[in-house]
């Protein structure tokens, strides 16, 4: 139950206003939670406790139920995306070529798990399916940059460029 450090919530009044309008338009409708969550993720980029609490209170649905829905569907994220979005390909070719080890190394270097973001908001980490660059396996992407034929030892050097 130990609390992990996370990026502080930086929602603005304008974003809150937008969310409130969405909630208002769905009030009293059955099955409102999922469309409202989609809208909220569009507004904020992710669904932290502050946003989920606003939705829970606005729609009169327990926060635990909202959280249950958010963690059930993979398209919802409770963590923000970083300035640099790292994607490690876990497609068959990359995996066979050791991308699992690379993922572990990145987790260790950044101190975050898959789906999370560093507390300073710089890097976020995702595991992806095949990105179609099997010839370069194992492959990692950082925003639009592609890094291929990686070894575990390359990772730290690459990060230092960002």
């Amino acid at each position: 139950m130990e609390e992990k450090k996370r990026m502080p919530f930086k929602g603005t009044k304008e974003q809150e206003q937008q969310l409130m309008e969405v909630i208002e338009s769905y009030k009293g409708t059955d099955g409102a939670v999922i469309p409202v969550l989609h809208a909220a993720q569009d507004i904020y980029g992710y669904l932290p406790i502050e946003v989920q609490t606003m939705i829970a209170e606005g729609l009169n649905v327990p926060l635990a139920e909202i959280y249950g829905i958010v963690t059930f569907y993979t398209q919802f994220s409770i963590n923000p995306k970083g300035q640099y979005k790292i994607g490690v390909c876990l497609g068959t070719a990359c995996y066979v070529k050791g991308s699992g080890d690379i993922l572990e190394k990145i987790k260790e270097l950044l101190g975050i798990d898959v789906g999370e973001c560093t507390p300073d908001g710089k890097f976020s980490l995702d595991a992806t399916r095949c990105i179609g660059a099997c010839g370069l396996a194992p492959v990692m992407t950082i925003n639009d940059d592609v890094y291929g034929r990686l070894t575990v030892d390359d990772v730290a050097d690459i990060f230092s460029k960002y």
């Binding site: 635990a64 139920e65 249950g68 963690t71 059930f72």
Partner: peptide
């Protein structure tokens, strides 16, 4: 917790 007591402190999470 959710339906009888209408507290809703716990729910099923993850999948």
């Amino acid at each position: 917790c959710k339906n009888v007591q209408t507290v809703g402190a716990i729910d099923v999470t993850e999948r």
